[in-house]
Simulated scan of single mutants.
Amino acid sequence: MNGPQAHWLADGRRLHLNHGPIDLIIEAFGDAAERRASCVRAVARFQTILTELVEELPELRRPASLTPRVFAGPTARRMEAAVAPLADSFITPMAAVAGSVADEVLAALLAGRRLERAYVNNGGDSAIHLGKGGTITLAIAGTGHGMADRITIRAEDGVRGVATSGWRGRSFSLGIADAVTVLARTGAEADAAATLIANAVDLPGHPAVHRVPARDLSPDSDLGERLVTQGVGGLAPGEVARALDNGLAVAENFRRRGLIAASALFLAGQTRISGSVALAAPNKHKAKETAHA
């Protein structure tokens, strides 16, 4: 595996950082000198993140409990803090790894700098910075389901993390959601919550759902022998509704507990929305200012 890589994309505005499974797109808005200095800090912080995580990987793959464990690395601590409040269900810190890495790099990007807006997108899970009165427009999964494919987040919404999970994504899922997008206070919290809500969008034992043990696909998976979804066949509209309602119940519970701000759940052309953030609001911002979540 190559070491950490950093380069500017062709547009000259977005920075691409890559190391093994971590793939980040970063964009900062504001004074040019501030943007350059912030990106230097982000690149420097990125150099050791994967190494730090690998050093604690065995424990990070173990299930969380309601009492947080102590980890040495700051990214690992973010992961544990995000999953501990959700540990009444099975979850490991790995459920928050993408969002936590985004949060950690964003923190480095902002340290000592004055930026109007910024985002760090880690494979679709994003950490966001908004200055006073700022807004940012995000592209979300689930398009083609009767929803707008853009959401606009305002500074006053308190949302600083967006994540998407589902069986079609790059990580394993126990459920059958095409996609679940969550808005929360941090990327780590959004990532962890999206994982569990997507797991809950399910029809246990349904013959149209193809599942295999996670370990058969990835021997080191933190999910072990748990069955992960690899295909979803035809479902009746009532079955789709029941699966989505199962997930919505979990999303509403998280929202009432203050763990998320909002979520959108998608399956087979049907949608459920939890929360007051207007996930279906039309995009009124220029495409060049759109981050992808």
Rank of each mutant, 00 (worst) to 15 (best):
N2I: 06
P4T: 10
A6Q: 12
G12W: 03
H16C: 14
I25K: 10
F29Y: 15
G30M: 10
G30H: 10
D31M: 03
A32Y: 01
A33I: 07
S38D: 00
A42E: 07
R45P: 06
Q47K: 11
I49G: 04
L50H: 13
T51C: 05
E52F: 05
E55N: 11
E59P: 01
P63C: 07
L66A: 15
P68S: 07
V70N: 12
A72K: 13
A72N: 14
T75Y: 03
R77K: 11
A82L: 12
A82E: 08
V83T: 04
A84D: 06
A84P: 00
L86R: 09
D88E: 13
S89Q: 15
M94Q: 13
G99M: 09
S100K: 09
S100I: 08
E104W: 02
L109R: 11
L109Q: 07
L110Q: 03
L110S: 02
A111C: 09
R114S: 13
L115V: 02
E116N: 09
A118D: 01
N121L: 01
D125T: 07
H129N: 02
L130I: 05
G134M: 13
I140M: 14
G146L: 10
A148G: 15
D149M: 02
T152G: 08
I153S: 01
G158D: 11
R160N: 14
V162Y: 05
V162E: 00
T164E: 00
G166K: 09
G166S: 10
W167E: 01
F172Y: 12
S173P: 06
G175V: 06
G175R: 04
I176R: 07
D178H: 08
A179S: 14
V180R: 03
L183F: 15
A184C: 02
G187P: 13
E189S: 15
E189T: 05
D191Q: 07
D191F: 08
A194F: 02
L196C: 06
I197M: 08
L203R: 02
V209D: 00
H210N: 05
R215T: 12
L217A: 06
S221F: 09
L223H: 10
G224Q: 10
R226W: 07
T229A: 06
Q230V: 11
G231M: 01
V232T: 01
G234Q: 12
A236G: 02
E239I: 01
A251F: 09
E252L: 12
E252Y: 03
E252I: 05
F254I: 03
R255L: 10
R257S: 13
G258K: 05
L259Q: 14
A262H: 05
S263P: 00
S263C: 14
L265H: 03
L267T: 04
T271Q: 06
T271L: 14
V277D: 02
K284E: 14
E289M: 11
